[in-house]
């Protein structure tokens, strides 16, 4: 089974759009999505399920913020090696610094415009599903 990508974003249309774009780029990549932090944690902490290859996490979420979710992920010994990329509309320096302090692998500002977004997903998928190596233990 092909590894999958987890999207955490409270804007469902964004998730839908990403899934659409992903399909045109590599139809084999599955996505799992969560609209709140708690939902994302629940899915990830379920030991019967396979861990995603990478989590694309929005910062502005209803309930737990993205940074809080990141903090909890990195505390969990089973989940701490799952790569987390922050995907946010904002680019406040304080947020960026805190995200990296908490162990985020990347901080991406959401690109503006469809063309840019598509380009970003292509690069992202290329890096995480083709070139990157992972610890499987």
């Amino acid at each position: 089974m092909k590894p999958h990508l987890m999207l955490v974003d409270d804007a469902t249309d964004q998730v839908y759009l990403m899934q659409m774009l992903l399909k045109t780029i590599d139809p084999e990549i599955r996505t799992v999505s969560a609209s709140t932090g708690d939902e994302a944690l629940k899915i990830l902490q379920d030991e019967t399920k396979i861990l995603p290859r990478v989590v694309l996490l929005d910062l502005k979420l209803a309930g737990k913020t993205g940074l809080e979710v990141l903090k909890e992920l990195k505390k969990d010994p089973r989940l701490k090696r799952v790569p987390v990329c922050i995907f946010s509309n904002a680019d406040l320096e304080a947020d960026i610094c805190e995200a990296y302090d908490l162990g985020a692998n990347f901080y991406f500002k959401k690109p503006i415009g469809l063309i840019e977004l598509k380009k970003f997903i292509e690069y992202f998928v290329g890096i995480w599903f083709r070139y990157a190596s992972f610890c499987t233990r």
Binding site: A11, Q14, L17, K60, N89, A90, I112, G113, L114, I115
Partner: peptide, 17 residues
């Protein structure tokens, strides 16, 4: 402004779509 940013951008994306 912070809260408006996400839906406005999203709107742009869907118009592109």
């Amino acid at each position: 402004a912070h809260d408006l940013r996400a839906p406005i951008r999203s709107m742009g994306l869907w118009v592109d779509m």
